[in-house]
Nucleic acid binder design. Sequence first.
DNA 1: TGAATCATGTAACCGGTTACATGATTTT
DNA 2: AAAATCATGTAACCGGTTACATGATTCA
Lengths: 179, 179
Amino acid sequence: MPKRRILPFIILGIIKSHPQITGREITDEFNTEIGDFWKASHSQIYPELRRMVDDQWVAAATSSKNAKEKYYSITTTGQQILDEWLSQAVKELPIHQDLFSLKLFFINDPKDPRIHELITNQIALLKQQLAHLKQRQQTVFPDKKTIQKHYGHYLILKRAISRTEGQLAWLNQTLETLN
Amino acid sequence: MPKRRILPFIILGIIKSHPQITGREITDEFNTEIGDFWKASHSQIYPELRRMVDDQWVAAATSSKNAKEKYYSITTTGQQILDEWLSQAVKELPIHQDLFSLKLFFINDPKDPRIHELITNQIALLKQQLAHLKQRQQTVFPDKKTIQKHYGHYLILKRAISRTEGQLAWLNQTLETLN
DNA sequence: TGAATCATGTAACCGGTTACATGATTTT
DNA sequence: AAAATCATGTAACCGGTTACATGATTCA
């Protein structure tokens, strides 16, 4: 089977929660809101928007204010497509292509100093990541009302924090057993 | 910067620990040993091997036994390249492109029943994965001696198990707070 | 000997990244 | 008016997947 196409669904979700959004703003979303969970560049997004308009998943409008900007909104067809996609069960887990695991894989000797290096380095990276995620949590969800309004987003942010903390704990513990 | 090319390094690592390995056997490795951490198909591997021979990272030998098979071994150049790669620090964390997070992201209402559906489904997937990983641990590392001989592999397998357990715990806990 | 599969290789396609390009708008 | 950047779009390239192809070997 061909690789599942998911970018249009993400864009659909973004447009739904941001009516009259521009392509540029959609691009920005991938660097802020969704940035921790998915990446996409504008050169991917603009052709995709074109296709989505052709397929009538979204509708584009222009403004007299700015001759170049296009304002996208989701159509009822788009709503259906998005709902359908969200309702479909996830069939398989992603495989985590991280270089950390991969490099460790090829280091056989328990006494190889590079094990220690890799782990301490990974700890540093994860600490950064954890700080970033906690920062996100504070700025995006300052109060309980906001949490209730974007509950799914809140959940996966919490999950990412939990996962990062878990990895840090494991790495620190492993580092101790190395000595 | 262009996307970092890593497949040749993995193949290098495989060949180093399996002298006189064939292309087919390398392909098989991606379905067993490394399968939990990286994927590659034979149509990627054969051209890559060709390039690696051209660059003299590995050397190919033929046998009178089988006219088609080629037996690859790592060269001293290849050893250096691999060592260098393993010694280089990992600069950034991978972003986890999992559909579970992504779908949750677009579900705003805490009472939307699809949250429950997605989580229970994810729990089922992770339970499967966990069973698989534990099975791997038993078959690949039956005794302490084997662990000492492939310590890096042992570590990342343990790490994968720990991560999966952590995710399961979080999901189960979250499921409770939903009720 | 015919069938199955082994082992290698190629071709077409696809999603994604980087770089290039170009008018419109805003800032100085 | 010139400079900066905004907003959109295109082109070249690259890694990876699927499908196709083919001769060698093994099995029935």
